[in-house]
């Protein structure tokens, strides 16, 4: 048991070393800094001073609804697929680990990286809100961080699964986003809307008075159920992805045939 745990922590360190070194390049950091700068500039120009509504609309619609899921899709969808396409997957799959373990390790490391990036972004967004005179942000920050943490877990797990399903995972992900999140998630006459990750995020964020005031239509009942749904969804997507990676062969020569 202890040996297994030691092996796993060593493997996690190894995977983190590889993921960190690939993600944290000078070029990637420069691009992220430029993107963050452009976004900050746009926010500063478009948010009216003292308008919490303006700020929340930016943070909710652009950041949480669009930027976070799309980044998760891009980063975690490609975590295995990019290795297949670059023909470097064999360096991982010939290491002494079950294939599902490799999948989980990749997921954990990529999610770790995303959580770091989004934590920094969120702090920046709240700092900008404070600069723009939005009030009540201090109370919202802990809830927003928890919600974002769960959102990144769920979006990333879904993205990892989509990445294993098909090489056109970006298109499938965007279609999923449109159909399930913005389609089924808006259906009010049935419980089918519970399938939407965004709906669970709305439920969590609407526990904050300021958010509920601005977005009155967001449900604010049963926040713990929303957390549970997000965790169960994460587990389900991960289990499906791990099963797929365990039983399916991934070779560059197979890519053309997909």
């Amino acid at each position: 048991m202890n040996q297994t745990l030691t092996n796993l922590t060593g493997a996690l360190r190894g995977m983190w070393t590889l993921v960190w070194a690939q993600r944290c390049t000078k070029r990637a950091l420069v691009w992220m800094a430029v993107a963050a700068g452009v976004m900050a500039l746009l926010m500063l120009r478009t948010i009216n001073h003292g308008s919490e509504r303006n700020w929340l609309e930016w943070v909710s619609w652009f950041y949480l609804h669009f930027l976070v899921p799309l980044t998760c899709l891009n980063v975690c969808g490609s975590m295995m697929r990019a290795e297949v396409q670059a023909n470097t997957l064999s360096f991982l799959t010939t290491r002494p680990h079950h294939r599902h373990t490799l999948f989980f390790l990749q997921y954990l490391c990529h999610v770790g990286w995303l959580q770091l990036v989004f934590f920094v972004c969120t702090m920046g967004l709240f700092a900008l809100g404070a600069v723009k005179g939005a009030e009540g942000l201090g109370k919202l920050l802990p809830l927003f961080l928890i919600t974002q943490f769960l959102a990144v877990l769920a979006w990333s797990a879904l993205s990892a699964l989509l990445g294993l399903l098909h090489q056109r995972f970006m298109i499938i992900g965007i279609l999923y986003w449109l159909v399930v999140e913005f389609g089924l998630g808006q259906v009010e006459v049935s419980n089918i809307n519970q399938l939407s990750i965004l709906r669970q995020l709305h439920t969590l964020l609407a526990q904050n008075e300021l958010v509920y005031t601005v977005f009155g239509s967001w449900p604010n009942d049963a926040p713990f159920m929303a957390m549970l749904v997000l965790l169960v969804a994460t587990f389900f997507f991960l289990a499906a992805g791990a099963a797929l990676f365990t039983f399916r062969e991934y070779l560059p020569s197979h890519e053309a045939g997909q």
Binding site: N7, G10, A11, G14, T17, L18, A21, R95
Partner: peptide, 8 residues
């Protein structure tokens, strides 16, 4: 180093 750690 990453691969060595992964290799146990």
């Amino acid at each position: 180093r990453g691969l060595a750690l992964l290799a146990g």
